[in-house]
Design a binder for these strands. Structure first.
Length: 156
DNA sequence: GCCAACGTTGGC
DNA sequence: GCCAACGTTGGC
């Protein structure tokens, strides 16, 4: 089993949206490296759900699970979508998406500031300078630690 | 809204 | 294949 982190802007698609939807196609990834990571996902892989660019809520907010491997991202063919890609064709799709299902929303989000405070997370991908990847692998140790941080009631 | 740190595009 | 210009991400 592999572990991942996937980012979404809370205004765009939040952990609450995923909870009410139960599962979602993770569309809109338009970065080759992120796409390649999605292509290597398998059913059962675990995902940290990260809210980016959302002010005080920036951080890991919950956990999801991959329940469907990559398929061509339908939004690349949709001329009305903001993710439409004129260079993509049905025969040669450029972008792919997995299906992820809701597992849990953290009692308390693990904010960026909190992540940075933890010495064990110095090499955590999200904390690397200039990291803009919206999909990235996470080590099992980091994944477990963040789940633990997310299930405490401690005030940070 | 600013801006650093990227990634992508396209002319050559 | 180089690289300048441009676009995007995302923390602040």
């Amino acid at each position: 089993m592999q572990y991942w982190l996937m980012k979404s802007e809370a205004d765009c698609y939040s952990i609450d949206d995923l909870e009410s939807d139960k599962s979602t196609l993770w569309t809109g990834v338009r970065n080759y490296q992120a796409r390649n990571f999605m292509l290597s996902m398998a059913v059962g892989d675990r995902v940290l759900f990260y809210h980016s660019s959302s002010g005080k809520e920036t951080g890991v907010v919950g956990e999801a699970e991959v329940i469907g491997i990559s398929i061509p991202d339908p939004t690349q063919f949709d001329t009305k979508s903001e993710y439409f890609d004129p260079k993509a064709t049905k025969l040669k799709p450029r972008w792919y998406c997995v299906r992820a299902s809701f597992i849990r929303k953290f009692k308390r989000p693990v904010y960026l500031s909190k992540l940075r405070q933890n010495p064990s997370l110095v090499d955590f991908g999200v904390l690397q300078k200039g990291s803009r990847l919206s999909v990235m692998p996470v080590s099992k140790a980091h994944f477990s630690l963040i789940l633990k941080l997310g299930s405490t009631h401690e005030i940070s």
